[in-house]
Amino acid sequence: MTDNSRSNEQLLLLEVKGLTKFFPIRSKGLRRKVIGQARAVDDVSFNIFEGETLGLVGESGCGKTTTARCIVRALDPTSGEILFSHSDRETVDIAALSDREMFPLRRDVQMIFQDPYASLNPRMNILDIIGESLLVIGGMKDRTKRSKRVAELLKLVGLRPEYMQRFPHAFSGGQRQRIVIARALALKPRLVVADEPVSALDVSVQAQVLNLMLKLQQELNLTYLFVAHDLSVVKHFCDRVAVMYLGKIVELALTTSLFEGPMHPYTKALMGAVPEADPRRKAAMVPLIGEVPSPVSPPSGCHFHPRCPHVTELCKTTMPALEEIRLGQFVRCHRAAELAAG
């Protein structure tokens, strides 16, 4: 599973093309007129190959979670295509499906949530929580059969099967996240969208959950879309990384190339801002100026230009395209080539 060994035969599992999600902002009045749009995700495109892990990084409000939720259709995209290669190698556009048409695809596309306390129904026991998709989608009506499968799943994620009668409040954060993972894997999905699966967990538990997710990926040939804000976790976990800023992908590259040679000024700033757990390597204390602007009225031209140290007049007026500057490294910056050379 090394980064460069992807052959051409590897199956393109998911192809996102021009995905856009705007949230209307309505006036307070009776008519609730639409007075603006929050451009949460704005023309985002990327691919995921079978068996790989694509990281989606960015700060809050960059649209990474919205992207993830559009792909699992917890949200309805405003426009764009989400082409998913079905089990029978037929491609369907998830973005265009109705809820009913989406139903059979839930088997293949599943989700892991950020907050393990909010994502388990406190009124249901573990058997019912994990077994729900087995019952509803899998049509496994027989309760004993279901509890057998749930027991397998619990063992798979490192929990004792005897605990399936327990309710979520009996488990710690890390254990709950294991239950969430077991639920997502119940129907043997092919794509798992993990929305910040470890950021709500304690440091010592994060590693346990990351290890589990890696192990399961290898055993079950899973494909992950891994949403995170923590760069070191992403570096550890992902094959390729897409960096998002204000609803747009600003850089997309293999993890190794990205971390060895980040090309977009925002990616560089983001990496420089991560405090390293080593007092001898003091972080570059020239932090990025300013803050992320509102997605309701993003800056003209390149969205990053008000904070960019390399800004030019062109940046203020024209949005750069996402271009392949180095092999496999796509950057949305007018000066990327120039800065890389200099």
């Binding site: 699992v72 917890a74 388990l120 729900e132 639920r183």
Partner: peptide, 14 residues
């Protein structure tokens, strides 16, 4: 808006 409701939707619930 709760995650467990979204999760139920993911589990195919009507």
């Amino acid at each position: 808006e709760e995650d467990f409701v979204v999760a139920a939707k993911m589990s195919g619930c009507s």
